[in-house]
Each structure stands twice: as structure tokens, then as C-alpha cells.
Design a protein around this nucleic acid. Structure first.
Ligand SMILES: [Zn+2]
Ligand SMILES: [Zn+2]
Ligand SMILES: [Zn+2]
Ligand SMILES: [Zn+2]
Lengths: 141, 141
DNA sequence: TCTCTTACTGAAAAAATTTTTCAGTAATAT
DNA sequence: ATATTACTGAAAAATTTTTTCAGTAAGAGA
């Protein structure tokens, strides 16, 4: 099922700002802020408004098509999301973000935490930070 | 070693805003935003400025005394940090945040990711979201 | 293909957050 | 005590995010 169909099925329309935001993120090599998406989006479609970028990101995130990236400094970065639950691995040098699956790998840890704290764990946020292969190769970090 | 000594040793001074911010977070039952910390801090020390809250949080976070909490909505929450690496478990109903250790539990997953992606993982961010025991008990979520 | 309905749009204004500037203050060392 | 300078609050500036609103266009149905 295409993303257009997924949006429609969820009751949302396929509109220009949503198309443009997705296309910008497809072409991006690192997480982009709403402002950055807006700037790049205008090169594709000059009438694109910043407000629509915010609104598009909100919808696309709910639809699971876009994923927010949390970082030490700013937490306003977005990347394209693969379907289903994924984690994110970010290069601290070039900013490249890679998704990886692995919800199951946390089940042992989650069981342990549930037993010790009495919480019932429902969701989680996991991000790994490091150096990608190219960045590891090129000179001292 | 007290937190005052830790600050001094790192070259920072022990000042009123830093004291107040820590005290507010000690008394808090959930992560607080800079604005909330400022409001509560003023009840302790009315001359406390908002700018100093921002600056205090920055220093205290660097010193490892305070921890930032990332959430779906806003990522501007802070809690008191236990010494060393911890993860955070947050109740989606009452907002209560609990720290828990467990860096080692991720080593298997991290090894796997490193092998598959070529990244060298240096750090990570892990937060669990769920329901605490009291909130699980009291009525339908 | 031509309506109709209304989700959606961009721009402007408003609100909220965060950073910068600066003259004065107070924490630490001597 | 005195000196040094990291640090302070307030105001201003910059930036980000939300709200409002009149108009537009996506998708459904004829
Ligand atoms: Zn890299
Ligand atoms: Zn965040
Ligand atoms: Zn709770
Ligand atoms: Zn950890």
C-alpha cells in the first residue's frame, strides 16, 4: 500500500504540502527541522507555507510516515520513517540517521524493569549515537 | 562528594539559582519545564530570573546533576539525576518519572547494530513509557 | 465530468520560548 | 579584607510555534 493510500485510508487527504515534505525528507541526508524542510520545500514548490510544514509533519507523524529524532541540542529533527516500530542510530559527526528494527531485543530489560518498578511498560524511545563508518575513517574525531 | 563540591571541582560556582533549581526538582513529582521551575523557584527565592533557570539547567545538566526528559509532545522536561548513566521510565498518566540503571542490558543489541551498520555506537538514549502501579489501579486509563 | 462538502491552505498576527546584551553583584581564592 | 571574574536579573532581540481567517482544492458522489 502506497503512502497516498495509507493517508486516504486514515481519512486524510493527499495534498501538496504533504507531498513536498515527504519528498524533501526522502532526499535529505540527515534529520531536518521544520524550518529546513520549509526552505528546501520552497525550492520544489515556492508557495509552500511554514505553517503547512508544521501541520504536515504532525499528520505524517501520526500516520507513521515520518519520525521525530531527539538529540542533545534540539529535538526538532524529522526523518522518513520505515513502516512499523524502529529505532534510530545517528552519527554525531555528519548527522546521518539510520533506522533499525529490534523492539524484541528490549523485552528482557523491559520485563526486569516492570518487575522492579511495578510499572507496566507500553512504549519506548531508543536512539543510539555514534560514528558512521565513513566518519570513523576520515581523520580524528 | 556533595553536589556543591562536584560543581566547584568542575570549576563552577555554587550560586542561588543553581541551589533553587535543584531544590525545586527535588520536590517535584514529575519532569518540569524551565517555565515551571521558574515559577516554583520564585516561591523559594522571588528574585530568581527565568534566564538564570535556563543557564542553571545547562550547567547542572553538564555536571550530571539534572537530566532532560524527552517526550512525544514537549522535550523540555527536567528531573533530578542520580549519579552515573541511567534510563528513565515515565508514567503516561500521572507523569511520574523514575530512573533505572542498565547500560549493560543493551550491549547485545548494540553489538548487533554495530556489526550490521558499520557504526561505532558511543552513547544512547532510552526512555520507557507506561503506567505506574497506582495509575494502573485507579480506573480505566 | 461536473458539483458539493469540508479538510486543507498560506499569510498575518499572536503567543510562547529561547538567546543575547549589559551593567551590576556576589562567589571563591589569596 | 581585597581582588578577580563567574555569575546575576531585566530588558531587548531573536526564534519558534500556534491561532485565526478568508479562500482553495481534494475527494466523494451524481
Ligand atoms: Zn557520519
Ligand atoms: Zn526530545
Ligand atoms: Zn502514574
Ligand atoms: Zn543506557
Amino acid at each position: 500500500m502506497s503512502w497516498e493510500e495509507r493517508l486516504n485510508q486514515a481519512g486524510w487527504r493527499v495534498t501538496m504540502p504533504r507531498r513536498v515534505v515527504l519528498r524533501v525528507l526522502q532526499q535529505a541526508r540527515r534529520p531536518l527541522s521544520p524550518q529546513e524542510i520549509h526552505a528546501r520545500g520552497r525550492r520544489i514548490h515556492p508557495s509552500l507555507g511554514l505553517v503547512s510544514v508544521y501541520r504536515a509533519l504532525e499528520v505524517l507523524e501520526q500516520a507513521g510516515l515520518v519520525r521525530r529524532v531527539h538529540r542533545e541540542a534540539r529535538c526538532d529533527g524529522y526523518i522518513l520513517a520505515s513502516p512499523g516500530h524502529h529505532h534510530v542510530l545517528i552519527c554525531r559527526r555528519c548527522g546521518r540517521a539510520v533506522e533499525f528494527p529490534g523492539a524484541e531485543d528490549l523485552s528482557g530489560l523491559i520485563d526486569q524493569v516492570e518487575r522492579r518498578t511495578g510499572f507496566r511498560v507500553e512504549d519506548h524511545l531508543l536512539q543510539l549515537i555514534g560514528l558512521c563508518a565513513p566518519c570513523r575513517g576520515s581523520g580524528p574525531a
